[in-house]
Design a protein around this nucleic acid. Structure first.
Lengths: 214, 214, 214, 214
DNA sequence: TATGAATGAGTGTTCATTCAT
DNA sequence: TATGAATGAACACTCATTCAT
C-alpha cells in the first residue's frame, strides 16, 4: 500500500509519550478542522474557514500540514486508528462471540457519541481522499471490517447459524454509522443504552432462526 | 413551512399527464446532474461539469432551473416523492404489520438498487440544501419516516412488543441507506434477496424477546 | 512531437482569411500580454497585470485561453511562425548563397525592430515553456535554425570555405538576438542599415581566410 | 550614482585578505543561489528553493543577506568584477589592438565556460535588479563596455578602418553572451578554440574592407 | 549563529451566475 | 430556446520576509 507523503518534520525524537509543541499545535488545528469539516463538509469548508476557526493565519496553517487533503487524512487516520486500538484492548480476554460483538458495538458507539464530529467526518467524507491518502485510510478500514467479519464468523460457528456475514456486517455498520444523521444528545439515549438496543436488534436478528440443518 | 422558490415556468399549459417539451428536457438534465452529483458530490460538482455531462451550454442550463441548489432540490424531491408514492400504492390492501414492514423494506431497496445515483444523492447530500429547499424536502422525509414509525407501532401493538420505535426505525434506515457505500451489483444480491435478508435481521431482532409484561 | 492542448473552441469554419470575433479579441489580448511579458518577464507578470493591461476582468481572460503558459505559447508560436513564413517567401527565387544570408539577416532584424516586444519575449523566455508547449515551439525553432545552417553550408560549398557551421550560425543568432538588450530606436540605425552592418561583419568574417586546401 | 544598500555586517574585522567565517559561509550560499537562479530564473526561484539548495533554514539565510534581490546583486557584482579584474591584468603589457581584442574575447569566454551558471545569471537577469542595486551593476557593466569600445577604437585608428564601433561591440557581446543558450560541454569546443573561432569571425569581419578613404 | 513559527500580500485558477442576443 | 461572452468573489496555495529565541 502506498504510504502517505511524510510530514514536513522528522518524527519527534523525544522519549515515548512526550508530544512536541509542534504536535500539540497540530492537534489543536486538527481538532478545529474536524468541527469545520463536520459542519460544512470537506468540499464546502474553505481554508479560510479553517483559519478563522483555529485563530491562525491562512499561511500559518500551511506550516503544519501541506494541503487541505492531508488535514482530512490526519483526521480520518487518527480517528480510525484510535477506534481500532481501543477495540483491540477491550476485546482482550473476552472469548464469547456474542459478548465480543456487544463490545464491538459498544466501542464503536461510545467513540461515536464522544467524538461525533470526527465520526461524521469519517463516515461522510469517506470518498473525499484520493490516491495514497485514500489507500492508507482504506487499509485501516479494511482491518476494522475484517475484525467484525471474524467475530461474526465465530458466532456462526459457535451457534451453528446460517446467514450472509457480509450483509450482516454491512447492515450493522449502516445502523451504527447512520447515527450521525439523527443522534440528538438532548433527546437520545447515551452510548451504553444505544449499544444495548442496537446489539439486541442485531444479535437477535442474526441469531434467531436460520440454524444450519444437520 | 417555508415553501421553496417557485420555478421560473410554473404555468403548465399541458393537460393532466402530458409532459411538455420543457419538462422532458428538464428531466434529461436532472438525470445527468444526478450522475454528476453522485460521482463528485454536490459541492464538488461544478456547473461546468453539468454542462459537459448534459451537452448543453452553461448558460443554457439556467433556462431550466435558476440555481445549482434548485437542481439538487428537484432531484431529491422527485426521488423522495416517487418512493413514497410507490410505497403507498404497495401498502394498499395489506393488513399484517410484519408484511407491511417487509413491503416497506422491499420498496426502499428496490428503488435504491434501481436508482443508485439518485439514492446516493438523496442520502449523502441531505444537508446541502438550505432554507426553503431544505424544509420542503424535510417535509417529505418526515412523512416517509412517520409511515415507518406507524408500521412499527402497529407491529408492537399487534404482537405486544416492547422496544424504542425511534431507534428501531432509525436503525432500519441506517441499514438500508448505508448500502450506497458498499453495494456492488456484480457481487451482491438483488433487491428482493437483500430485502429478505435485511427484513429477517430487522424483524427477528425487533420481534424476539422484549415482550410487554402483563 | 507532442502537439499543444487544443484551444477551447473549434477552428473557425469561415472561409480563408476571415477571423472571428473571438479570434480578434484573443489577438488583442495576446498583443497586450506581449507588452506585459516584455516589460516584466513571464514569471514576473501576473494575470492581474494582464487583466489591467487588456482592460478585461481576470476571469474574463480565461475565456480566451486556459492558462498563462498557453498565452506565452501563443505569442511565441505566432512570432516564430510569422518570421519563418516571411523568410521563406523572401528566399524564393534567390540563388546566391551570400544574398540569401543577407536576406535571412534582414528578415530577422526587420521583424525584430518592428515587433521588439514579441522578439524579446521569444528570445528571453525561451525556457519558460514546458512539455508539450515547449516542444512545439522548439520544433519551429529547429526548422528556423536548420534553414540558416543550410544557407551557410551552401555558402561554404560555393566558395570553398572552411569553418564550423554550428558556431557560425549560433554566433549570428547571438549577434541578432542580443539586440533586444540594447537597441534604442532613437539612437540606433534602422533595420536595413543594421542588417547591412551585421551582414558585413558576419559574412566578411566567415568568408575571409579559411579556404579549403585543394 | 546611488550606491546599493550596505550589507548588514560591513565591519570586516579581519585584516586584509583574510576571509572571515561569515564571508566563507556567504560565498557558499551565493554559489548555491547561482545554480538555483540559473536553473529557475530569478523570479522563478523561491527563497525556499535557496534554503533547500544551501541546506540552511529559510530564516538562517537572512542572517547573510537582507533580501533575495541583494543576493542576485552579490552574484552579478562578483561575477562582473572578477571578469574585469582578470581582463585588466591580462591586458597589461599587450599593445597590439588585434591581440588585445583576442584577449578580451578569450577572457570572456574562459570565464563563461568555467562559470556558466554565473554568466547565465549575469546575462539573463540583467533587468531583474532595481534602483541602487541596478545602478551599481550597471556601472561595472559600463566600464567593461568602455574597455571594449576603447580596444576597437584603437584597432580602427591603428588600421585605418571604418565601421560603427557601437554596433561592432554590441554584436560581439551578442555572439559571446548568447552562448549560454546553446553551449553544450559534451559537444562544443573548449574556451580557447571557441575564442579563436569567434575572434576570427569578428576580427576578419571588422577588419576586411571598409578602409577609410584618404 | 541559526531556526521554528508565523504572517500579509499575492499567485494562477475556478466558481456560480448573468445578460445581450 | 439557447449561447457566447463576461464578471466579482472565492478557491487552495506560495511568496518574501520577520522575530522571539
Amino acid at each position: 500500500m502506498a504510504s502517505a507523503p511524510a510530514t514536513r518534520r522528522p518524527v519527534s525524537r523525544a522519549r515515548a509519550v512526550a508530544t512536541s509543541r509542534f504536535d500539540r499545535r497540530l492537534a489543536e488545528i486538527v481538532s478545529h478542522a474536524t468541527e469545520v469539516f463536520c459542519e460544512k463538509g470537506y468540499e464546502g469548508a474553505s481554508m479560510r474557514d479553517l483559519s478563522r476557526a483555529s485563530g491562525m493565519s491562512l499561511a500559518g496553517l500551511y506550516y503544519y500540514f501541506e494541503s487541505k487533503e492531508r488535514l482530512l487524512f490526519l483526521i480520518q487516520k487518527h480517528t480510525f486508528t484510535t477506534i481500532v486500538q481501543r477495540l483491540k484492548s477491550r476485546l482482550e480476554g473476552v472469548n464469547d462471540p456474542e459478548q465480543q460483538i456487544r463490545i464491538f458495538i459498544l466501542n464503536h458507539l461510545e467513540y461515536f457519541l464522544a467524538n461525533p464530529a470526527s465520526m461524521k467526518v469519517l463516515s461522510h467524507e469517506a470518498e473525499a481522499l484520493k490516491n495514497g491518502f485514500a489507500s492508507e485510510v482504506a487499509a485501516i478500514k479494511r482491518e476494522y471490517y475484517r475484525i467484525c467479519v471474524g467475530l461474526l464468523d465465530d458466532l456462526k460457528r459457535a451457534r451453528g447459524l446460517q446467514f450472509s456475514t457480509r450483509i450482516a456486517v454491512l447492515s450493522l455498520f449502516g445502523m451504527m454509522n447512520w447515527i450521525y444523521t439523527w443522534h440528538n444528545s438532548r433527546v437520545d439515549a447515551d452510548a451504553e443504552q444505544l449499544a444495548d438496543e442496537m446489539s439486541d436488534i442485531f444479535l437477535r436478528g442474526v441469531m434467531t432462526g436460520g440454524k444450519v440443518r444437520r
